[in-house]
């Protein structure tokens, strides 16, 4: 059985297990935390696609998330559009927003991309606060984002079982799309080649800029989808989603999971969402703690949790390196008699 097949089977087994587990959980707080986990899985997988696999330093991930949430909320509140339509439309809008970010900077060196995307992240809250006239709700944000309705089924905030399945399905589809269709598909191979060697990728006829643009746009659309779900789940959307807390959370998720190391990012999303809930007691020290975790994890486990697994293997392997002494031929260096020192 190949690694790919194992991953696919493992993925299906995990989704099935989650689906069966829901009624057994019962407790609505735990269901709530699981819904958050699933939404963060979407956001972090999309980020991993760009940061980890394509090697694009995108720090506007939360900005895109916010754009998705705001777009869906504003469509539903402002135009009365049914959320079932507003959510996919928000994903498209977020994708377009991603494309707009990517256009000016993806031709440039990595550092510029990092700084530019981060500048977008820092600039967006002000824009949202000043955009009251356009329906952003200013500093207090959007309140009363309506619940998603499919036929007679209403996914209100209190309908935890309903949301559990909805978010699980959304996360499963997103993860499948990102890791199994894109990363392992033709596109994915193209940009893994790009990340590892641009010269090699070019020799295969891969257009770097276009590939990166497509990927960035796709990742932004998925992220916006996650943001839209989030907005309809919690019912409010404020500029505070762009604050330190969420930014730190997704950073910890990705660094713990390891960049470009499926299923590390997903694991990170669960660990951090649950951990963050457990840390609620810590109050204002929680963010300090999260920041410290980012630094420590990046330093101690540069590839995330997968390091804990491979480190042991490597240590074992290092001992076994055979240096082929037997192969070394006799040295026959020559001396030049006509020219001695």
């Amino acid at each position: 059985m190949t690694g790919e097949t194992t991953a696919r089977l493992g993925f299906l087994a995990a989704v099935t297990a989650f689906a069966i587990a829901a009624p057994l959980i019962g407790d609505s707080y735990i269901l709530h935390v699981m819904v958050l986990c699933f939404i963060w899985v979407i956001v972090v997988s999309a980020w991993d696609l760009v940061m980890g696999y394509a090697g694009i330093f995108n720090f506007a991930q939360l900005a895109i998330f916010a754009v998705g949430g705001y777009a869906s909320g504003m469509l539903a509140i402002g135009t009365g559009m049914p959320p079932v339509l507003a959510v996919p439309l928000a994903a498209v809008i977020a994708g377009a927003f991603g494309l707009l970010i990517a256009l000016p900077c993806l031709r440039l060196r990595g550092e510029y991309v990092a700084l530019f995307t981060f500048a977008v992240h820092l600039a967006l809250p002000t824009l949202l606060e000043k955009g009251r006239a356009w329906g952003t709700g200013g500093a207090s944000g959007l309140v009363g984002v309506p619940p998603i309705r499919i036929g007679d089924l209403a996914f209100t905030t209190s309908n935890k079982i309903g949301w559990y399945y909805l978010a699980l399905a959304a996360a499963a589809i997103s993860v499948w799309l990102i890791y199994f269709v894109v990363v392992q598909g033709r596109w994915g191979r193209a940009f893994v080649a790009l990340r590892d060697s641009e010269a090699f990728a070019r020799s295969l006829g891969i257009d770097e800029y276009r590939t990166k643009l497509k990927l960035f746009t796709l990742s932004a659309a998925v992220t916006g989808f996650g943001g839209a779900l989030y907005a309809h789940y919690v019912g409010v959307m404020t500029p505070r989603v762009l604050g330190n807390e969420f930014f730190l959370m997704v950073m910890v998720m990705l660094s713990i999971g390891g960049l470009g190391r499926f299923p590390g990012a997903i694991f990170g999303a669960f660990l951090v969402t649950v951990g963050n809930e457990l840390l609620r007691e810590a109050g204002q020290y929680r963010l300090l703690f999260l920041g410290a975790i980012v630094v420590l994890v990046v330093i101690l486990l540069p590839n995330g949790v997968s390091d804990l697994l491979t480190r042991r293997k490597k240590a074992a392997a290092a001992k076994n390196i055979e240096i082929g002494k037997a192969d070394v031929p006799t040295i026959r260096s020559g001396v030049n008699p006509s020219c001695s020192p």
Partner: peptide
């Protein structure tokens, strides 16, 4: 980048 950004948040929150 991740580490310096994380460190920035450590200082901010400190």
């Amino acid at each position: 980048m991740m580490a310096t950004l994380g460190f920035a948040f450590v200082l901010d929150n400190l």
